[in-house]
Design a protein around this nucleic acid. Structure first.
Lengths: 136, 136, 136, 136
DNA sequence: GTGGTCTAGACCACC
DNA sequence: GTGGTCTAGACCACT
């Protein structure tokens, strides 16, 4: 369900967060769907429950999840107007693009990269839709 | 010369590195130009000399600087084939783009942003060329 | 595990680096094997933790290690295409050979020395293979 | 006469020493030949006289030069039995070869490298002999 | 407990 | 004056 990469410098709890955020934003997990319990995830991934707890807590703060005491955590959906996050992302994006341009990377190459990302994203959405149809 | 942001989670030595790398890559600092001494830079930015030293040392390892004990640190130029740096930049780029796409930002908007950056870069180059002509 | 020589002009952190690089390159330490923690190593060698940290950090940058905050440092393996390292070694090699030749050391003597090293290496590999067979 | 490389991490005085040692050991400078004065060398190379002074002083200690107060420094020849130096060199040589072998560099490649060095050395000696003949 | 950053201050080699 | 190494000790983030 979620892939951890221990060699990545990104902290484990961030990897868990990213994994779930992705599943939610891509629609793989639907609104009000229940997430695995902290203990279950922890034993699945063979990591400390505290790490999962932190991931869930922060995702809740960001608006992706909601928790019901004693019952578990559930998908809340994609928080609208996460504009602060967008600004952050655009800032990082701009810095990277600027330096890449200075390093003689072609504008075309960069845009192609975006297009490729976009295509993959579409494909994923389509295959998800198809499997949903099949399930009907 | 270099702007530090203490609120940023990016370590200070990284901010210093990025600042000088930018000056070098953009040609603001010329090859063999002397950098401020470690101590001078440290007192300018009001941080510890060790922190500057680390920034300089790593830039030297990456090939942007060379240091001569007893003389100072100097610009070496933009290391050819700094593929590691490009990979870093593309990784940052990809991560940002992916999340932006998930946040419903249009592919077009992103590419326009790249184009805009590119135009500005061209303008800068042109005005630089013009001022060089004027100097002749 | 690692021998320090305080009389050597080579910095301590370099000696530590060389020691671990050797253990890794020779296969004495296996991939994903955990290294002693920074603090442990420091107290073992009776030197400052910062010195060990620097050694580990640079080995990580070179691709020999990977570090996970909160877990420890682990062997990543011998970085493929560590051409920089080979260049370093060849440079050291060339400098030594050149001066030896000037000092009237025969070409034959030098090559014999290489051959001897090579033979020892082969013997080690063989005995290792044999003990592996025995283990089967 | 002597090439300085400011980008090299080797200290200037070492580069000067190496340069003269090489000229002496290769026979380009003959025994009892006078070296340029400290001031002359310093202004030629555009460096501090102290740096030249140090190079001359250490070469004298190593036995390559002798100084006559008020007259200058002269070539003493190649000091015999610099066996301590040879041991140092062999140690560095062994370490480099060992790691190169572990890094899958062929024994042949290493020996060829030695042979090449040797050939170049011979060529230099020959061309020197030829130019000496021509001068007769 | 782990690694990572930063400060403060000492000492050395080089110019 | 320059860069480079090392120590001592603090603080933070992660598991």
């Amino acid at each position: 369900m979620i892939q951890l990469n221990y060699r990545d410098s990104k902290p484990i709890y961030e990897q868990v967060k990213d994994g779930f955020r992705r599943l939610i934003v891509q629609g793989v997990m639907e609104v009000d769907e229940k997430l695995p319990s902290v203990r279950e995830m922890a034993s699945n991934l063979a990591i400390n429950p505290n790490t999962i707890q932190r991931a869930y807590r922060e995702l809740e703060q960001e608006g992706y999840l909601y928790a019901v005491a004693g019952r578990g955590s559930f998908v809340a959906g994609v928080p609208e107007a996460d504009s602060a996050r967008k600004e952050e992302l655009f800032a990082a994006f701009d810095a990277a693009v600027e330096e890449l341009l200075y390093l003689q990377v072609e504008e075309r190459e960069i845009c192609q990269r975006v297009a490729e990302k976009y295509r993959k994203l579409q494909d994923k959405a389509k295959s998800k839709a198809r499997s949903a149809e099949a399930a009907d």
